[in-house]
Design a protein around this nucleic acid. Structure first.
Lengths: 128, 128
DNA sequence: ATAGGTGCAAAGTCTTTGCGCTTAA
DNA sequence: TTAAGCGCAAAGACTTTGCACCTAT
């Protein structure tokens, strides 16, 4: 994989960002300082970078794909109110899920867990 | 909610089918005997029926939504080879997930678990 | 030198929607 | 009767792709 200027730009942006980013949000943000950047390039790079496991592609609630710098196995919490996405540790489930796949007689290659609820920030706003 | 002929047609088809169906597959299948059926109607009915909890909308791996007659809480196994979707029992995780949401300090409303791997049928084909 | 990357715009896929007609309750 | 549903076709949202030019290696 070649490391073009655009590719570095996109990768750095993701690595230096704590949010879960959509292709479009990356495009819009980077376009501010790089007006010639095209959305197609962003999509092509996100595909390339996630194939090469430098970032992680997450298909959560259908609609929009989101990209994550956290390559570790983890779950997501999507807030019902603000739609924010937060990573959660799912190591406590690891064992049970493995057993489950054995019980179902399947050789598991991967799994995804997504919780829906109200995030801490929104919870606090309600209390006020 | 009114129970029009088309709505009954679509609901019955889902309830009498064991597969996880996409809007398009429902449309194509029903159109055979109901040539005037339109895809918009299928989408509108699927939305309506799942809002009223007669069927369940499942957004799995991003792209396409799928509809399920199984209203019980359950997980899904998507086969890496044939892309089939099978329901799996996730009751063994219930407790741990609840604890996890408490630990993360969020009021959980729902969760989804999807396993990826090789289903029994494909597994057997490989062995042969 | 050249395989791979880029911008741009067109096309693709899935889903929603506006409109005038139809139908269940 | 009338709110809700329908067919149709157009539009939306997100993503991919073809092409001619450019650039990292």
């Amino acid at each position: 994989m070649k490391f073009s200027k655009k590719r570095k730009l996109i990768l750095d942006f993701i690595l230096n960002n704590d949010k879960h980013l959509t292709a479009d949000s990356i495009y819009l943000e980077l376009k501010k300082d790089n007006p010639e950047l095209s959305l197609g390039t962003v999509y092509r790079n996100l595909a390339q970078l996630s194939e090469n496991e430098l970032i992680k592609k997450i298909s959560l609630n259908g609609q929009i794909d989101v990209f994550d710098k956290n390559l570790e196995k983890h779950g997501h919490l999507i807030c019902d109110l603000c739609n924010s996405i937060n990573d959660i540790d799912i190591s406590p489930l690891e064992e049970t899920i493995k057993k489950m796949s054995e019980k179902n007689n399947v050789s598991m290659t991967n799994y995804e867990l997504t919780l829906h609820g109200v995030c801490k920030i929104c919870e606090n706003e309600i209390k006020e």
